[in-house]
Write a protein that binds this DNA or RNA. Structure first.
Lengths: 226, 226
DNA sequence: TCAAAAGTGTTTGGGCTACACCCATGT
DNA sequence: ACATGGGTGTAGCCCAAACACTTTTGA
């Protein structure tokens, strides 16, 4: 046991890459660092791990505090541990990625901090290695969306196939053939057509779909190549 | 800065899932825990992260110390942080997976600890959450081998297509059609045929191949489904 | 009437699978 | 001679990609 006592201890934090989807774009929730060093740069939602919680719980707590939301999709990305990655003190940080529906977000504590949604292609300067965290998180999101309908976590509960396709186009930064995308998605047998239509995005009107209740978390065969 | 000072610090460790390949089987390097608690159970190669190093460097150091090898393929798997995952003291552990050629390993410090190679299908009881680390590491290995020739890290520098196929069969725990496997591998254009043959494993003799020097780390299109 | 999305159908090509088949050679 | 792996060829199937076409309706 003495061996344990000789060892160095470290501050351990979590940083959450919070993805949202709005106006046809993937967006990220960031807040401005209000104090030196690197004041004015933007930061991921983060916080320190506490004595009585796992890092998963810490990430969950951070999101609860900053977005007011509780039942959020959350997954580990990687751990960043370079000795010089922060400035004043060494911190080992476990990066997570989260998916939330911006329409559920609305007002919350995050606004008090000046938090803002940034389109993924127009990000500001970020502190420390947060840009690398985002890069890896996006890759994870693409992998995840390729084998599950996790993408629908970013949409309202009911959505049209146009909305779903636009979301996938935003995630993968490329276009999909409308007919083929529709056939592929429907062939997976995880979507359930509802009995009413959305008429705001097309003249003809498109049926709403929702994910079948028992298929939400299901692992599927490849949906899209990545 | 006061905010930093109030936070709890943690012991941070690395645990390495060391994969090897021998006699047609994937094997894992483990050593027996010599002291209580859980004396007699087996453990992954691990160690604490030090003040002046990243976790990557720590994992590298642990492998150097236990196997004598330096230039080893090493990749992060995930971080395990449940408060009760160890017994006497809380330790947050970053799991890595490593690939080494058993023929390069031979004698080393690890033998002094009683380290032993275990076939992946006949593992002993493991301490803490090490079995879960192995499960996730194997999954990572399968993904990695599916998009790169990382598998050849486990073979001698030159190898026959039979040896490569047997390795992939061991990694994915399923059989591959000999003809199709050969065609697929050669079509990737990353293997270079050498001008001599191996005659120990077949009457006819099979050409040796090696990975083209400039293609070792290359990301490929899908090699095998997983 | 026209544009734009909804929704369905068809064709094509590439790749994977399952085999068949010949070659070389040690026993 | 025969068993075994080395190595090549091929027919069938599935699926993704490309794209044609019809429907519906608001502007």
């Amino acid at each position: 046991m003495d061996y344990y006592k000789q060892q160095t201890k470290f501050l351990v934090a979590v940083d959450c890459v919070v993805f949202g989807y709005e106006a046809g774009e993937i967006k990220l929730l960031l807040y401005p660092r209000a104090f030196e060093p690197v004041k004015g740069s933007w930061s991921l939602m983060g916080g320190f791990v506490r004595e009585d919680e796992s890092s998963d719980q810490a990430a969950c707590r951070v999101l609860q505090q900053t977005t007011g939301l509780n039942d959020i999709f959350l997954e580990q990305v990687a751990t960043f541990s370079a000795p010089e990655r922060e400035i004043y003190e060494r911190v080992i940080s476990i990066a997570y990625f989260a998916l939330i529906r911006i329409d559920r977000y609305k007002k919350s504590k995050a606004d008090e901090f000046g938090a803002k949604w940034w389109p993924i292609n127009e990000l500001p300067n970020l502190i420390f290695d947060h840009d690398e965290m985002i890069r890896q998180a996006l890759k994870k999101l693409q992998q995840k969306a390729g084998t599950s309908l996790v993408g629908s976590e970013l949409l309202p509960r009911k959505f049209t196939l146009l909305q779903l396709r636009k979301l996938y186009e935003a995630i993968y930064q490329r276009e999909f053939d409308p007919g083929n995308f529709r056939k592929k998605m429907l062939s997976l047998n995880v979507l359930e057509r509802m009995d009413h239509k959305n008429s705001t995005e097309s003249k003809k009107g498109a049926y709403y779909y929702k994910v079948k209740a028992d298929k939400i978390e299901e692992e599927l065969e490849r949906i899209v190549k990545y």
